[in-house]
Design a protein around this nucleic acid. Structure first.
Length: 1163
RNA sequence: GGGCGGGUAGCUCAGUUGGCUAGAGCAUUCGCUUUACAUGCGAAGGGUCCCGGGUUCGAGUCCCGGCCUGCCUACCA
């Protein structure tokens, strides 16, 4: 024990054997115990022990809690389960690392701090500025990181606290930059313009999980689009916008075979009707689509639509994405179930810039759309959601009256205008019809605004690449994978087929996610997070010179561009080659346009990049001033003359005077999705990519502990986090991992080893994934702040103790997917609690008192020292046998992540076996039996060890005293001494050999227990005074001496009489025999008037019921035995068992009948 | 729409390859301040295992269909 610690006996307020505290009071022990663990560094993992081969590794990384808020009960569950694994494996002798830390939680934290800022200082983050705002978030993070850490410690989590990390600390940031660089260099990160969920109020992109669906009452609007002929494309190859149009008439459609055309006035202009819920987006339509199976499709080929007011000519596309109207479908009745088919007209307006499906559809028919002279994408909205002609919409035409209107106003105006206009005759309004329609619409969590699908530039990871998502699928163990483990060209890779989910059904979730995965958008328009480590260079040379070159021929242009790029790249690489410690290979340049380069630098900070750019500019001054050629098709989209210096004021001044006309440089303003850094967690926390730079505590960590053993998390995290960790670990870690020669080579080669990889063939971040339940309230609702039904772990700890909370949580962790936790307000404190935790509190108290009793038995003068080879008494043999079984059950349950079975097994061992039977049985004998004392001590010691991972505090507190008791060796039971500071948490997990299993003793004890139960029942039935000792009349030889002794003790039997049956005794049935109890009450009471009458009535009733039950059993069992198939097909043992059961049932019935008869004669 | 759970005592839940005469905790009833523990001890009552078919000597358990309920994930002109 550490010198700084007071001795246990003097420090405990209520020691076990003393007169104090009949109840376990957690608050008197938890803090003291925790201090001892800390002082002994009991949870500090030593990677060298693993690398030297002294111990096997066991590692868990914590799912880093968000610094947004304090931990809730779900966290308590998650971390308790991890702690059970960590503590049990530490006791089993594994060198155990549980890596703690927290997550910066980008948008969530930023939103919380923004709200706080608004409330406290009435400022927006823009008013405060990026630097100052980030400082605010940083201090908020510090506050909550401290709270969370404290909460985890109070829960008893045995994390390696010296190694705590944060996803944005320097070590983790280095990992993020390295990972981004590698993926960027390998072409797996790209920037692209895509539709994102746009929040027009906050004006940022938001992720799917930051949105919610809500049903709204809306309408389907039916819009008529006039049909026209357009001039055929002219020239060879290059398409031209059709300028001249003529109306298409119904007559013509009828000639073309359009069904129903004859029902319209033949000479009038024809139309098609589209159905939409968002009429205002028609301004961005670039096509109308029809299903090729639609009977009208053929007759419309080659015709166009003239978009009202805008005057845009757009094609009619054929695509089977379009839903046929119900009436046209093969099975109209079936189709009626599909609301889309019910509302559809068969014509779909295609607005690729404002609808994800239209986006896909539009690009499938890119050529046809562009043939009309329109781009596929026409964006009609400004970022604030108003109609705008400044963000990609040019052919406004007569539609200028909509410009400037917000979405809702624009919709109203569009409908008014369509209603007022007609096609063909004056009776055909462009707004054909309006039908009410209720549907769900995506809303932003943060602003509650309706999400606008909006085009914007974002960064993506190409996770569909074989080295990422498919590699993640290959990680699944064969029996959880639906795919053939086909031979890869290079053979199976490290990590293939070793990822296992518990429960196994979640492997399916995992696999299907990867099968349907889409590229991962990793950029967020936020300030709190890892900033995208890419600097954008935009060149704006003298436009006159460029124009001249633009007119030169293709080959010259290509050469000029290549020369220009080469000059710039050489210059950049040269600079980094010269700079200390950085190589040319640490820089990656990619070009998005002829005039725009993206520079990603592996390790450098912003200052270093700026130096590089300056260097580059000087070296290329002449090239830039001369100008370069560029592709005339693309230059229109480049904002060439607008230098962008966001966030780079330092650089702006450095380039003052030249940048305006020549070059702009800026770091990308976006930050990375939080999951990007979380995905690196099992690597970054251990010092990847460069443990040496991270610090000396990181020496050997990665080699020893990555791959980790187990990840514990909730199911919604499978896609968000588990998948991404697997992809990144496999992609970024070397395939040959861990290095084969542990010690010597590991150190020297660490850096080069870690720089390899990139094939998706690397090791897994963990081998097992345990998915636990989600905790709901008593009504099955999610716990949430707004409902006020949440439970704070610290409130539970205050009311019930940490151990009680942990036990209850483990006990309810079965394979189910959610668990209910009825919540109550504690009237005393006003805090939320749950009666469920009484179970754990009572159990901790039971253990405390069992230990107290044991101490009074063993703490006295008597000191058993002799070793026990073979215990002799029945009850001791039974107890050891039960211990052996329980050790085996508990160990297996832990290995299989069966927490409930584990908890239940130890619960039954302590309460049902040890307390109810063993302690009661040994009370008369233990004081004088040193061997029994040894068994008692060993039993308690074993129970403490088995229970420690679930209830660390109370077991450690008891162990402080138990360990001081002299112990004797018991053959077959191994209880290894603690490794650190005499602490139970470092003591050995109990092992019990099979030799301790004693089926004969168990059977004898069971038989005895059955008799005791029967006797107690009879006593209760006959209202025998609880403390009264009575006489049992039983045949000689029914019970062996030690069995008889147990019965006497446990059923309060004065003597066992083997003589004649007494008159007036009470009969009981045991194994089909009649036994009798007499001397049930004092003679005076027995003869008192009415003393036995009611008792006899009750007994009669009981016996009658017993007979009825027996008859029922007999009928069932005889029915079974009389079934001809049964005897033939059932296993013989089963038949024998049934026969025995039948015999017993008959004996019971007969005995009960006899007893009833005897009672009758006495009455 | 697709996927995955759950439905067993008043409540919360176990029930692992079919062998069950279905269990636990809480709650209820009765009796106990028994000298480790009233956060306790002893005893008792309480079930159409959602419904309907099927396989089997035998189904809470396996198969098919249905009902109710929850979660995830798409989609929503």
């Amino acid at each position: 024990m550490s010198d700084s610690q007071p001795s246990s006996s003097s420090s405990a307020n209520s020691n076990l054997s003393g007169e104090l505290s009949k109840q376990y009071k957690p608050a008197e022990h938890e803090q003291r115990i925790r201090a001892k663990w800390d002082a002994a560094k009991a949870f500090h993992a030593d990677p060298q022990r693993v690398l030297k081969g002294e111990a096997k590794p066991y590692a868990i990384v914590i799912p880093p809690p968000n610094v947004t808020d304090r931990l809730h009960l779900g966290h308590a569950l998650n971390n308790t389960l991890q702690d059970v694994l960590a503590r049990s494996h530490r006791m089993m002798g594994y060198e155990t690392l549980w890596m703690p830390g927290t997550d910066h939680a980008g948008i969530a934290t930023q939103a919380v701090v923004e709200r706080r800022l608004k409330k406290d200082e009435n400022l927006t983050r823009q008013q405060l500025g990026r630097e100052k705002f980030i400082a605010k978030v940083q201090s908020f993070k510090d506050e909550y990181e401290a709270i969370i850490t404290e909460q985890l410690k109070l829960m008893g989590c045995s994390c390696d606290w010296d190694r705590q990390r944060f996803t944005m600390d320097d070590v983790c940031a280095r990992a993020v930059r390295e990972a981004f660089f590698r993926l960027f260099k390998d072409g797996l990160i790209y920037r692209g313009k895509r539709l994102v969920n746009w929040d027009p109020v906050l004006q940022t992109a938001v992720a799917d999980d930051e949105c919610y669906d809500d049903e709204i009452d809306s309408f389907f609007y039916y819009l008529r689009y006039p049909l026209v002929h357009a001039a055929a494309p002219t020239g060879g190859g290059a398409f031209q916008a059709p300028r001249q149009t003529t109306p298409v008439t119904w007559n013509e459609l009828a000639r073309r075979g359009y069904p129903g055309a004859e029902n319209h006035p033949g000479e009038q202009q024809a139309w098609v009707t589209v159905a939409t819920t968002r009429p205002e987006t028609y301004l961005g339509d670039t096509a109308v689509a029809i299903n090729p199976k639609d009977p009208r499709a053929k007759s419309l080929r080659g015709l166009f639509v003239d978009l009202p007011l805008v005057g845009r000519i757009i094609p009619i596309l054929e695509d089977d994405y379009v839903v046929l109207p119900a009436a046209m479908q093969e099975d109209p009745e079936e189709a009626k179930k599909d609301p889309k088919a019910m509302f559809a007209t068969g014509f779909l307006k295609v607005t690729p810039a404002h609808d994800a499906n239209d986006y896909e559809l539009g690009f499938r028919h890119k050529a046809a759309v562009e043939a009309c002279g329109n781009p596929v994408l026409i964006n009609i909205f400004a970022p604030d959601g108003s109609i705008s002609d400044k963000h990609g919409w040019t052919d406004v035409g007569d539609a200028h009256l909509f410009v400037g209107l917000k979405r809702e106003a624009a919709r109203k105006k569009v409908l008014e205008e369509f209603k007022a206009r007609t096609v063909g005759s004056s009776s055909n309004s462009l707004l054909a019809e309006t039908k009410p329609y209720r549907h769900s619409v995506k809303h932003s969590d943060r602003s509650k605004a309706i999400i606008e699908p909006y085009l914007s530039d974002q960064w993506y990871v190409k996770v569909t690449d074989d080295r990422l998502a498919p590699a993640a699928n290959r990680a699944l163990v064969a029996d959880q994978s639906s795919k053939q483990q086909s031979d890869k060209q290079q053979g199976p890779a490290n990590g293939d087929g070793s990822l296992k989910f518990y429960p196994s059904r979640y492997a399916k979730t995992y696999e299907q996610w990867h099968d349907n995965i889409r590229d991962w958008c990793i950029s967020r328009q936020l300030w709190w997070g890892h900033r995208v480590p890419v600097w954008r260079l935009e060149f704006a040379p003298d436009l006159k010179a460029w124009r001249v070159l633009a007119e030169s021929d293709d080959r010259q242009r290509a050469e000029a561009i290549a020369d220009f790029r080469a000059a710039i790249e050489d210059s950049i690489y040269e600079f980094f080659g010269e700079s200390n410690g950085t190589q040319a290979s640490d820089v990656c340049v990619s070009w998005t346009h002829a005039t725009t380069a993206q520079v990603c630098v592996r390790t450098a900070d912003a200052t270093r990049v700026m130096e590089a750019i300056e260097h580059f500019w000087r070296a290329n001054r002449d090239v830039l001033s001369r100008g370069v050629a560029f592709d005339s098709k693309h230059d229109l989209t480049i904002p060439v003359a607008v230098p962008c210096l966001v966030g780079c004021e330092q650089l702006a001044s450095a380039f003052a005077g030249v940048t305006n006309s020549a070059i702009s440089i800026s770091q990308d303003p976006d930050v990375l999705d939080t999951w990007f850094s979380s995905a690196l967690w099992p690597m970054s926390t251990m010092g990847w990519p460069n443990p040496a730079l991270a610090g000396k505590d990181f020496d050997g960590l990665l080699q020893a502990f990555n791959p980790t053993t187990t990840l514990c998390t909730a199911r919604e995290i499978i896609t968000l986090w588990v998948s991404r960790m697997v992809m990144f670990n496999r992609y970024l870690m070397p395939e040959a991992w861990p290095p084969s020669e542990p010690r010597a080579s590991a150190r020297a080669d660490a850096a080069p080893d870690l720089a390899t990889g990139g094939q998706g063939r690397g090791p897994l971040p963990f081998r097992n994934v345990f998915i636990h339940a989600v905790i709901q309230d008593g009504e099955g609702r999610k716990m949430s702040k707004s409902l006020g039904n949440g439970l704070d772990p610290l409130d539970i700890i205050a009311s019930h103790g940490s151990d009680a909370m942990r036990f209850t949580l483990c006990q309810m962790t079965t394979q189910t997917q959610d668990v209910r936790m009825p919540m109550q307000k504690d009237p005393a404190t006003g805090r939320n609690t749950s009666p469920k935790f009484d179970l754990g509190r009572n159990f901790a108290n039971k253990l405390w008192n069992a230990a107290r009793f044991t101490m009074t038995m063993l703490g006295g003068a008597s000191h058993p020292t002799s070793d026990i080879r073979h215990p002799t008494s029945l009850v001791d043999k039974w107890m050891l046998s039960r211990l052996a079984t329980a050790v085996s059950e508990a160990t297996t349950a832990i290995e299989q992540f069966e927490y409930s079975n584990y908890a239940q097994s130890v619960y039954d061992l302590l309460w049902r076996d040890f307390c109810d039977w063993y302690l009661e049985a040994i009370k008369p004998t233990v004081a004088s039996d040193p061997r029994q004392q040894a068994v008692l001590r060993a039993s308690l010691d074993t129970i403490l060890r088995l229970l420690h991972p679930i209830m660390p505090y109370v077991t450690e507190a008891i162990y402080e005293q138990v360990r001081l008791l002299p112990a004797a060796t018991i053959d077959g039971l191994t209880l290894a001494a603690p490794r650190k500071g005499d602490l139970l948490c470092t003591a050995g997990w109990p092992t019990a050999s099979k030799s301790l299993r004693d089926t004969a003793a168990e059977a004898a004890f069971e038989r005895t227990r059955a008799l005791v139960t029967a006797l107690r029942e009879a006593r209760s039935q006959h209202q025998v005074a609880p403390k009264r000792k009575v006489t049992l009349h039983a045949p000689a030889g029914l019970l062996k001496p030690d069995e008889a002794a147990l019965v006497q003790t446990l059923a309060l039997i004065e003597t066992i009489d083997t003589g004649t049956q007494p008159t007036g005794a009470v009969a009981i049935t045991f194994e089909g025999k009649q036994l009798f109890l007499s001397n049930l009450r004092d003679a005076a009471a027995a003869t008192a008037p009415g003393a036995t009458g009611s008792v006899n009535d009750a007994e009669r009733e009981r016996l009658t019921k017993l007979i009825a039950d027996s008859e029922k059993s007999i009928a069932t069992l005889e029915g079974r035995l009389n079934n001809p198939g049964y005897a033939q097909k059932a296993p013989p043992a089963m038949v024998k068992q049934t026969q025995d059961q039948l015999a017993k049932a008959k004996a019971d019935r007969d005995a009960a009948k006899a007893a009833l008869a005897a009672l009758g004669s006495n009455a």
